[in-house]
């Protein structure tokens, strides 16, 4: 009898322990831990670009979590993102002219909505709107300001083809975009090695709409952002003649290798590294 009792008690303990562990996992380590027991009120915020913001992303004031993103929609007529923020009722004294901004935690982190307090005497009410918003600044755009990149290729209608010779195309591949002033105007059709001149021949298909490009324009291989893909940028020249189908672009600038660039700044750059490797090879 006592034998049976002991294992019955042990089994009971085991079941309780198992369910306790499950409850712990579900409530303490999952998103339920972030759910608010208290009631929330909903405030609208309209953004031109929300980047990678997702539903249930945190809403923070001064870095403190005060709510979460309830839903994300698109206003069809104005093409702005309509983000509904569910904010804890305890924080109901948010000035109506506060600014809602889409921030990124760290360089590669998740995005969240930050609210910076304004100075208005009125508080934003349930169903109200933050009229002042800052959109998500995409990393590519910020870097693009430094590197002269940004944007994405659009659909292409009729095209004409020109070729350009580069001594080094880096990681450029067919399908990469061709941009002028940062705006995509075409794409790379092929990248092949020239057997006699020992350089790379890149064929560009440029949209027929852009048929006024001077024939002394320069083509350069750029990189979007630090670790982005490579594209061909066209810098217009001053010639009165325009590029036509089958023309070759004379002025080119090859891909800048990040390693080379860094090497120029650092003492132990690529040049020395090569020598070191050679020395080590002996």
């Amino acid at each position: 009898m006592s034998q049976r009792k002991s294992y019955a008690v042990g089994t009971g303990l085991f079941i309780v322990l198992g369910f306790a562990a499950l409850a712990y996992l579900a409530t303490q380590t999952s998103s339920i831990a972030n759910r608010y027991a208290g009631a929330t009120y909903t405030v609208d915020a309209k953004f031109a670009n929300i980047g990678q913001l997702k539903e249930r992303a945190p809403v923070k004031i001064a870095g403190v979590r005060v709510g979460q993103v309830e839903s994300i929609g698109l206003e069809p007529n104005t093409a702005v993102a309509d983000v509904k923020l569910a904010i804890d009722l305890r924080y109901d004294k948010i000035p109506a002219d506060s600014v809602a901004t889409v921030f990124t935690s760290g360089l590669l982190g998740d995005q969240y909505v930050g609210i910076e307090y304004g100075h208005a005497k009125q508080y934003v009410a349930a169903g109200g709107t933050f009229s002042l918003t800052h959109s998500s600044p995409p990393l590519e755009e910020m870097l693009g300001k430094f590197f002269g990149a940004g944007g994405a290729a659009d659909a292409i209608g009729g095209t004409y083809k020109v070729t350009a010779h580069f001594s080094n195309v880096g990681a450029l591949s067919a399908g990469a975009s061709v941009k002028m002033a940062g705006v995509p105007i075409g794409q790379v059709v092929s990248v092949v090695a020239e057997p006699t001149k020992l350089d790379a021949v890149v064929t560009l298909a440029i949209d027929n709409r852009y048929n006024q490009i001077p024939d002394d324009s320069a083509a350069a291989v750029f990189t979007s952002g630090l670790i982005g893909s490579q594209y061909v940028a066209i810098q217009p020249g001053g010639s009165p003649d325009v590029l036509k189908n089958g023309d070759e672009m004379i002025l080119t600038q090859s891909a800048m290798q990040l390693e080379d660039l860094i090497g120029k700044f650092l003492v132990n750059g690529s040049g020395n590294a090569d020598k070191k490797d050679a020395a080590a090879g002996k």
């Binding site: 380590t29 999952s30 998103s31 339920i32 972030n34």
Partner: peptide
């Protein structure tokens, strides 16, 4: 903890 609770979904991951 906060990164964990922000990502782990109770339905997808635990159930």
């Amino acid at each position: 903890w906060s990164n964990m609770t922000a990502t782990v979904d109770v339905w997808q991951d635990i159930i």
